[in-house]
């Protein structure tokens, strides 16, 4: 198995693609340290990981935007001998219908930047020292193809788009910093995925389809593996559009 004897940190591991990536890494042999917030979901994740392998998996309650919390996560990685793979997938979900930018509160803006962007920085930061020591490691930051045409603005998602553009730029910077040290940095840019985050938002509708979180995990973990042999800069993955539904009149006729 390709990730045998490796430790993988996954933030945002209790739902969406964070969860499926954590499970896929475990299936391929990794010891997973998953980070989330909801105790019930963390317990469910722990049980799912335990069902895959008897490796020393962990599901830790932590705020990815809190340096103190992430220091606790770092200790959990150190206990397991280090970290080979860091997947920063945590993202803030703001409840309710997405507001127009003029109606977005500073508090909601800050929450999204704190979790989506600062959380990526902190997740990377707790891993980089150990990876430098090993002279090896994979960092995967989940950016986004914010539109089907790539990184472009989407109405009513200003903080989300700003944070994802920033992850893309930030990841290029640390990729250049760390390449010669044997650490590979990927900013992964997926299009619409069938997860709670984008349900009923404008982010999901433009693509004509959605990828399943399981598919995205298979694609991403395969990419990490291939990335150990070749450079795969800035991967963008989009959903294959689904066949158009039959015209409304057709379904009327069948009633």
């Amino acid at each position: 198995m390709s990730f045998e004897d490796e430790v993988a940190l996954v933030t945002g591991a209790t739902s969406g693609i964070g969860r499926t990536i954590a499970l896929e890494l475990a299936r391929r042999g990794a010891t997973v340290v998953g980070v989330g917030r909801d105790p019930a979901r963390l317990a469910a994740l722990k049980a799912e990981l335990a069902a895959i392998s008897d490796a020393n998996h962990a599901a830790i309650a932590a705020d990815v935007a809190s340096e103190a919390d992430m220091e606790r996560v770092k200790a959990a990685l150190a206990e397991r001998g280090g970290v080979e793979v860091c997947v920063a997938s945590a993202v803030a979900k703001i409840p309710g219908f997405p507001p127009r930018t003029k109606d977005l509160s500073l508090a909601d803006w800050n929450t999204q930047i704190d979790v989506n962007l600062n959380g990526v920085f902190l997740a990377n930061k707790i891993c980089i020292d150990m990876m430098l020591e090993q002279g090896d490691g994979d960092i995967v930051n989940i950016a986004s193809s914010t539109t089907p045409d790539g990184l472009k603005g989407t109405p009513m998602a200003p903080a989300y788009c700003a944070s994802k553009f920033a992850i893309s730029a930030y990841s290029k910077t640390i990729a250049a910093e760390l390449a010669e040290e044997g650490i590979r940095v990927h900013a992964f840019h997926p299009g619409a995925i069938d997860t709670p985050l984008i349900a009923n938002t404008s982010l999901g509708m433009a693509y004509g389809g959605k990828m399943s979180p399981e598919s995205v995990a298979v694609a991403l973990v395969g990419l990490i593996e291939l990335g150990r042999e070749m450079g795969i800069p800035e991967p963008f993955f989009l959903p294959v559009p689904q066949p158009r539904a039959a015209p409304a009149t057709a379904s009327e006729d069948t009633k």
Binding site: E181, S215, A219, M230, I232, P235, F236, V240
Partner: peptide, 22 residues
């Protein structure tokens, strides 16, 4: 081999950067 609901967009594949002698 990608799952059929996903595709990769105009992907560049490049040599991995040379590692610094440590």
């Amino acid at each position: 081999e990608l799952p059929r609901d996903a595709f990769v967009v105009n992907q560049v594949v490049a040599p991995i950067p040379q590692r610094k002698k440590r």
